[in-house]
Design a protein around this nucleic acid. Sequence first.
DNA 1: GATGAATGAGTCTTCATTCAT
DNA 2: GATGAATGAAGACTCATTCAT
Lengths: 198, 198, 198, 198
Amino acid sequence: MRRANREDKRRRIIDAAVDVFADKGFFGARVSEIAERAGVADGTIYLYFKSKDEILISLFEEKMAEILERFVNMLSEVHDTEEKMRRYIIEHLTLVAEQPRLMQVLTVELRQSARFMKDYAPHAFAKYLALVGSILEEGQKKGVFRKNLDPSIFRRALFGAIDEISLEWVLRGKEASLPSPVVVGEQISEFILRGLRV
Amino acid sequence: MRRANREDKRRRIIDAAVDVFADKGFFGARVSEIAERAGVADGTIYLYFKSKDEILISLFEEKMAEILERFVNMLSEVHDTEEKMRRYIIEHLTLVAEQPRLMQVLTVELRQSARFMKDYAPHAFAKYLALVGSILEEGQKKGVFRKNLDPSIFRRALFGAIDEISLEWVLRGKEASLPSPVVVGEQISEFILRGLRV
Amino acid sequence: MRRANREDKRRRIIDAAVDVFADKGFFGARVSEIAERAGVADGTIYLYFKSKDEILISLFEEKMAEILERFVNMLSEVHDTEEKMRRYIIEHLTLVAEQPRLMQVLTVELRQSARFMKDYAPHAFAKYLALVGSILEEGQKKGVFRKNLDPSIFRRALFGAIDEISLEWVLRGKEASLPSPVVVGEQISEFILRGLRV
Amino acid sequence: MRRANREDKRRRIIDAAVDVFADKGFFGARVSEIAERAGVADGTIYLYFKSKDEILISLFEEKMAEILERFVNMLSEVHDTEEKMRRYIIEHLTLVAEQPRLMQVLTVELRQSARFMKDYAPHAFAKYLALVGSILEEGQKKGVFRKNLDPSIFRRALFGAIDEISLEWVLRGKEASLPSPVVVGEQISEFILRGLRV
DNA sequence: GATGAATGAGTCTTCATTCAT
DNA sequence: GATGAATGAAGACTCATTCAT
């Protein structure tokens, strides 16, 4: 094995944590199992993270930041607001299809830990919500979306709808053969845009 | 203390569990704290429930059944499908406003325990989703809702949107002064109905 | 059901305890199960016995006293010492065949509780051992048994041999079809008497 | 403290368990007390044994195996069958004199757990009984012991006699000054061999 | 830096015993 | 006397975290 540098090992631990949290949930996950899957000793975990909690928090912040960057990049290439909304929805569902375990952790455990996370990791999630809200606001400003919708409420409704479908996919998806993210995304976009249009 | 009959005590334990689970989450909750808040001895819990898990499961099944009955009764008095949808949304938000701690447990812990609950309590939740789906299907049959929306997907999207707003209320509501469930419900209904109408 | 008088109920509890102790062992036995098999309420047990320990102790003392009386009566009709020994051995094995559950408790649990019983119930057992010893001493006095055997040791060896065979019967007997107590008793008597004769 | 290697610590735990089981019995023994006497933390016990039950089971299997080896070695040096029997008896009593606490656990707790042990540890005990039986059978084959004794019954009688004397020693021995194992063993051997001889 | 054996605080659960009815 | 619901003390076991090597 090549010499594993610090970043490498840290990443391996986080990736292992995603797997174990997805399989067992945060409380059901054992630090020793994360260590085992990461190929490091139990104690090594604590050279990179202060505690089990901190693994989850770091995981959130880093993965959400990556996702956020991906969304921002993608949206910066699109100028039509309706298209932005469509692309956002499809992109989220694509993420779920591509990295179901990660999305399960971000989706399920985020909820689970809502109270737990309130104090620790709301920052990254808040940014994500802000992104969704910004599309709404842009549409309202441009006059393509109705103005009597409160963005701070509708961004959550929007996120909730997408997220719930993601959850369905993530939890039951292994059994059922699922339609492609694009197909579902188009349907949902159509539904939501009708609701939003003036 | 008045003589507490069996049902009485069981209810007190469940109510205490709602409080503690809402405050601490299922895993953070201590059986001894539930006992204390219920005003019974630790051991008494186990005369009514086989385990800590079973408290959560029973809580779900019983409270969801009550809620479901409430929804079914309410909807049976309404005949216009759009109005049904509107009333369902407002009713859900009203529930959240009335019993925030219960809804937090049903909302957050249900998610948290998605994996855990898969084996135990999906029944009650499935019924709830079926209720939502039935409104959609009724609308499609009557020709008032578009037919190219898959009810099994849209019922989740619908639930997710409502649920996410509930979550926001439940988790942050204590601080902010919230608009009334009716006002928010009307807005969301309008949004969703536009998306659904042919 | 006829009115159960005090003695009746006490006996029913002891008989139930014999069954449960035989099935589960003293520590595995639940007071509530004894109560159930005796057809009384849990609390009723404590009107007749101070504690679970005391059930075992009383059981021993009473059943051993009965057995002892049976032995004393039987032996008082026999005058030949060798015949006494033979009859004692056969009688013990007959008891095991007739009341295996009782003998299992007296045999296995007596051992188990040897330390536990040291302080409580050695009296009845001591009398039983004294009975065995008295046959030995009688034989030595009459000159039919060798005098260089210490009765306080040999009575235990004698008891141990019989008891061990009883244990085998009691624990494995349900499966195997066993030879009659008389046949086995005759064999063992022959063996032991050869060892004892001058 | 010197570095304690794995085997070292395991042995310390087993030795501590022998002490505590001898003093308190299996059910009266506290895992925390075993840990304390072994000089380890409570949790350490569980690095070496899966459960409290498993401590008892391992203890049996390992100690019985050691004892068995000791007997086999000793008997392999003796060729006269009567002498084998004599040596076996003396050796057992010597063991009791040398390691009374261990023998108390093997003797008393084996009985106590007869039902409990039926599923777990009968193997080692069965081998021990087989050893005793083999001496009997050898004697019968050589024509020095009577053939009308069923070895499967008499090996138990033999074991019972020896074991019962051991129990007496072990339980009451602390108070009384006891005759030497050799003296008692010779007496018992004489008694038993008379019973066995043709 | 890395290891992994050891730690020990923390909690669910059981069940003998009590006592209000 | 009888009941059985309630009590609460007690203990096996887990696992995040530490630290000597």
